[in-house]
Structures are given as C-alpha cells and as structure tokens.
Design a protein around this nucleic acid. Structure first.
Length: 660
DNA sequence: GGGAAAACATTAT
DNA sequence: TTCCAATAATGTTTTCCC
C-alpha cells in the first residue's frame, strides 16, 4: 500500500504509482517496499503501459470523488432511512449464518516454482521465477525477498533481483502434480472444489466426524499426506465457510495452517481487525474506493458504515460488504460447476499490419474451435477482444441466431468484428465464445424461452436474487413483491438453485442434437457425437430439416454457409430473387446472404407450423423475433470508442458473493 | 420504459 | 537486448430495439 495517498509530494513520485506489487503477500515481509516501489516506477515510467495505468487511476479517482459527493448530499433523513435498511439487512444476513460445516482451503506453496525445483534440485535455495521476461507466474520465496512476485513482468523482476533464474512455464508438469494433490483431497472430501491447479476447497465436516478428529488435525494429516505424495508443501486454512477458510490459509503460509473455530464470537473477533484487502473479491480498486470514500480499512468497519454502503451501492454489492463485516461466506457445495465461456488470446508486438492481424485471428479461431470440440461446446455469442498499442482494451460482440463451433464460422464472424475496427494498431487479440447450447444449468437452448430454471438464478444464501440494480433502500417497500416471488415458487429456492433441477426435455432426446456436434447425455455431460460434424455440414436441399435447429427455427449460419451453392440459384439472372423478385447484384454479398436467410426463415417457419402438433410444448416455441427480415439483422454500427473520457459515475459496482 | 445485448470493469490464479 | 500474460467469472453501465 502506498504510504502517501494524496499525490503532491513531488520528491517521491513513485509513491503515488499504485501497483499491486507491494501488497502484502506471503513471503514478502522483510521486503524494502519503498525500494521496490521506486524501481517498479522507474522501469515503468513513460511507457505506454504506464500511461494507461495513469488513465485508469484517474478514472478510479473520479469514481471516488463522485461517491464522496453523493455521501455529502445525503440528508439526515436519508441517513436514518438507510441505516434502518442496513440494520434490517444485517439481521437477515445474520439469520443465514451457518456454523455447521467445517471448510478447509488448501493452497500449495509457490506451486509452479516448487514443482520446478522438485524436477531440478539445483534450483534449491536460489531466487527463481516461473515465467518469462514479459510475465512471471510464480516466484519462489527466495525471489520474493527481493520483491519479485507473481504478475510482475520479468524485466522488472530482473531489475529487482539480477541473479533471478527464469524457468519457463510447463503446465503439463503442474497438472501432473496437481492431479496427485487432488487424489489426496479426494480422501477427505470426494466433492472437493478445485479453485485452480494449486488451490482447493474441501468440506471436511464428514471427515472430522468419521475420523473423530478436529479440523486442525485433519488439516495436519492432509498436508502431511500431500507432502508424502508429491514432495510439495502446502498451507491450509480451516473455518466455518469458504471465504474464511481462504483467508485462514494465507495466515501461516508457507507450510503452515490456521484454524478458525466454528463459533460466532471467534469469527467476529477474527474479522474485526482484518483488512478488507484480505478478503477474496476485494482487490486494489475496491480497497482504494472503500478507504477513500468511506474510511473503511477493516472488515469491522463495513458494519460501522453499513448505512452508507446501503445508500451508495447496489443491493448485491452492499450485501457482499455486509456479509464480509459479519464473516459470512458460502457453506454449500454446488453440484456442478458449468463452464460459461471459453476463450483464448495472444499478445504480440503491436502492429497495424492487417494481414498479420487477420492471420492471428485465424490462428485463434482455429485454436478456439479445437478447444470447443474437445469439450463438445457450441456457442452463440462471440466476443472479440482487442488491446490497442496503448493498452486500451475494447470488446466487440455478436450474438448469433445459431450455435457455432467450427473455426470457419468463428473466423467469419470474428473477421467482421475486426474489420469494423480497422485501421488499428493492436498488441493483443482474443476471442471468447459464450451462451452455449444446452447450458448444463438447465437453461434452455432457446435463449428467449422463460422457464422456472431460468428464473431461479443461483443458490444464494443471502437471498439477493432480485434485480441488483434496484437501489438497496427501496426494498423495504418491495416487501410485497418479495412475498409474491416467494409464493410463486413451490419449493424453497435453495433446493432448486443447483443443477439438480433439469427439464426432462433437455435430455438426449433432443432431435437436433446433431446440429452442434454434441449431445447432452442423461448424466448431464457433454458427449461428442461422432459423425455429427459431417452431418452438420450437409445442406438442406429437399427441404429436409434434419440439420436445422427445430426449436429456434432459424436461418442459421451453418446452414447458410453450407448452402452457398444453393444461394446461387436463388438469384435469377444473377441479381433477381427467384422468390420475391427483389433485385440485389452479386456484389451485395452480405445483403444477399441476409435475404436468403429471410426466405429460409420463412420456409422453416411454415414447415415448423405444420409440424407443431407433433412436438412438445417446449419445442413448439418459435420466437417471433427470430424471424428476421433482410432489413432487420443489420449489423450495428459501433460508435467510435468512448474510452478515455471520464464520465460521471453514479454508482460503483463490486461483484458480490464471489467467495467461491 | 423495459429487456437483451454489448461494452466496460474488477478480480483471481 | 528484452519493456506488463492468459483464462474465466461476474458485476455495472450503456446502447439498441420494440
């Protein structure tokens, strides 16, 4: 943390350059923070990266000032109102406190670095970092003493520690060791939650009971067992929920553990003086904001400022902050964790060479398609991520009417998105696919269809499933709505939140499963369907609808792209539509594509309506907005990027309940 | 005005 | 010499369209 908050001390400019590198981390106790700060600053100063950081910093400052203004404007009546709101909410949250589970968080010590040392013992005792000159993934404890740490670029690390040894990342190795640790975890909680290769959460309640052991004893035993199996040390935290267990595992790192008893008094005492930055989900920005706008530094102060928090933040953010103040966290084990997106991105030296950029795009599309096929995924939202030479990040997205997975389809749409941004000098391109077909959480493929499972979002101990953007204070008057909501749900929503709620219609009987190269087997796993790929390439000649999504009944892109030949003879004399007579010359490629889409949609709709009585109610649903006419479906024109302008911010946002 | 999609931002490993 | 990553999730704000 920088010592001087308000800049203006010109003698030490580095003190106002806020990096994450001086934040307290295990193994960095004896570090000369002032020196690290200065070197990081000097290495960065004047770079494009630095300039971008300054832009971001100014943006945050603006946010803080805005919030301070809002606080200043609160009347006594406002304050008293929001305090009532807060007090009520605190009681409600307190009522959800669950002290019946014992959670353990395991965190491998300097995992990648430790694995590398294991396979090359000569590294032992020397400062070493896993990563490259541009980025470090993990630093061992010897290197940390120099201020070298994860997420720091290698060239700065070398400046801090000239003898630093660099070892390239080798995920195969880490995965192997990770698997070994997980075999151990399995013995204590078969449903343990892996947070990453080197971290996991275990509900050890049953293990304690079965072995007649305390949480601390189980932690000791587990750590010993991990060491025996792998030769690697880890640290553990034991607490009544995941959020607290995670905080605890950091306390006696490395190779140590800390137990927080399942006792309300103990929890409150523990939390009271804990800096908010120790909480997972509170990062540099939130820490900064809460400190400068509210004077909040410790978790206890969240409660002391509860009224203001409720007045200024969205409901979900305020709930999260209050939960932190109470030391609450998740205690349930979600049945399955579904992937929501899949992405890749690559950094390169900045260029505006369009041929190069398109080639990168093609490479990424190919890689992404391979990854998607591996997991049997098809998605309908494609997001292009661009980082300009000046580190400005832009995202451009399209949501298609058809689920895609092939590199050709991905590239086709990604190219369109990129094209709209040219000319541009980029240093990174990335792409992400989301909105998967048959999301395993029971969300129907048809995104417009509302079902109960759509309505009930997630398991949420805080009961904050309602519109987050509703100002928190308004919920006192919304009691009526809440009651209605509850009454409309036949079952306690905690029971329904997990994926055990599945519509039988979503099983493998889905008629168009072949359309996306994957089927959903009964156990909810995506299984690759051999031959589906070829099948989906088949055209729709002879009005066969085999390859077309019958639920959405759309002029899908796959069909269109595979029907280019068909598209040819839709045009009489090469410019006049055979079906409606509209005239479009061959050079109007996109327009013609859209036009044929339109006729296809028409046709499908007709066929669909004649088939309706044979389908289940769910399959019958044809969203009318999906029947696009040529004039709809036009690509939206992006306004020029608004980045760089600092607009007044009315509210701030923080993710809530992110204590995974 | 409201809902969906897009854009932007934060966090974590 | 080199000059700030990749992946995923989630939340807020803005834009678009009906």
């Amino acid at each position: 943390m920088a010592k001087s908050e308000s800049s203006g001390d010109t003698g030490r400019p580095w003190q106002s350059y806020h990096t994450v590198y001086t934040n307290a981390k295990a193994g960095m106790e004896g570090v000369d923070k002032e020196k690290v700060q200065r070197i990081v600053y000097e290495m960065s100063k004047g770079s494009k990266y630095f300039e971008n950081e300054e832009r971001k910093e100014a943006y945050i400052k603006q946010k803080i000032e805005n919030m301070q203004d809002q606080i200043a404007k609160l009347t006594d009546a406002d304050i008293s109102h929001y305090q009532k709101v807060a007090d009520k909410r605190i009681l409600e949250l307190e009522a959800t406190r669950d002290l019946t589970r014992i959670w353990l968080h395991v965190d491998m010590d300097a995992f990648y670095a430790a694995v590398e040392t294991l396979s090359n013992p000569s590294l032992n005792g020397k400062p070493m970092a896993v990563g490259s000159m541009s980025m470090i993934s993990t630093a061992n404890y010897e290197a940390r003493r120099f201020g070298v740490r994860a997420a720091m670029p290698g060239f700065i690390a070398r400046k801090l520690c000239p003898e630093l040894i660099f070892v390239p990342v080798d995920f195969k190795k880490y995965t192997h060791y990770s698997d070994l640790t997980r075999k151990v975890f399995q013995n204590y909680d078969p449903n343990f939650m892996a947070a990453s290769l080197d971290e996991a959460y275990l509900d050890i309640t049953n293990a304690c009971y079965e072995r007649d052991a305390t949480g601390g004893e189980i932690a000791e035993e587990l750590r010993k067992s991990v060491y025996e199996e792998t030769g690697l040390t880890c640290s553990a935290g034991v607490g009544p929920n995941r959020l607290l267990a995670k905080v605890c595992s950091d306390i006696n790192k490395p190779n140590g553990q800390f137990v927080l008893p399942n006792d309300r008094m103990a929890v409150m005492a523990f939390i009271s003086s804990l800096p908010i930055r120790k909480i997972g989900g509170i990062g540099k920005v939130t820490e900064h904001l809460l400190r400068d706008a509210f004077g909040i530094v410790t978790c206890e102060e969240m409660l002391q400022n509860s009224g203001f928090l409720c007045a200024l933040f969205s409901r979900s953010s305020a709930d999260f902050f209050l939960s932190v103040g109470l030391g609450l966290g998740r205690t349930d084990t979600p049945e399955v964790k579904l992937r929501k997106s899949i992405s890749n991105e690559r950094t390169f030296s900045a260029t505006d060479d369009e041929a190069f950029l398109y080639q990168k795009l093609a490479d990424l599309a190919e890689m992404l398609s391979v990854d998607m096929k591996k997991e049997g995924l098809c998605g309908r939202t494609l997001t292009l991520k661009l980082k300009t030479a000046s580190f400005e990040v832009r995202t451009r997205a399209v949501t298609l009417q058809k689920y895609i997975f092939s590199s050709e389809d991905i590239l086709k749409h990604a190219s369109k998105l990129l094209k709209a941004e040219l000319p541009i000098s980029l240093r990174l391109i990335g792409m992400r696919m989301s909105q998967f077909s048959e999301d395993k959480d029971g969300t129907p493929s048809d995104p417009t269809q509302k079902t109960l499972s759509n309505f009930i979002v997630t398991g949420d101990a805080t009961g904050s499933n309602m519109d987050d953007r509703t100002p928190f204070g308004s919920d006192l008057k919304d009691e009526h709505f809440r009651t209605q909501l509850k009454a409309s749900l036949p079952i306690d929503n905690h029971k329904l939140c997990h994926s055990d709620f599945r519509d039988p219609l979503e099983s493998s009987e889905i008629p168009d499963a072949g359309n996306c190269n994957c089927i959903l087997s009964y156990d909810g796993e995506m299984k690759k369907c051999d031959g589906a790929l070829n099948k989906s390439k088949a055209n729709f000649e002879g009005s066969s609808l085999d390859n077309v999504d019958k639920r959405t009944s759309l002029p899908n892109d796959e069909a269109v792209s595979s029907s280019n030949q068909k598209e040819q003879y839709l045009w009489v004399d090469d410019y006049k539509c055979l079906l409606c007579g509209v005239e479009l010359p061959p050079s109007f490629v996109e327009e013609r594509q859209e036009h044929s889409d339109f006729h296809l949609a028409e046709r499908l709709q007709k066929e669909e309506s004649s088939n309706l009585r044979n389908l289940t109610p769910k399959q019958r649903f044809i969203p009318t907005d999906k029947i696009t006419s040529p004039s709809q479906n036009r690509r939206k024109k992006h306004k020029s990027s608004s980045t760089g302008k600092y607009l007044p911010i009315d509210t701030f946002f923080v993710k809530s309940n992110r204590n995974s």
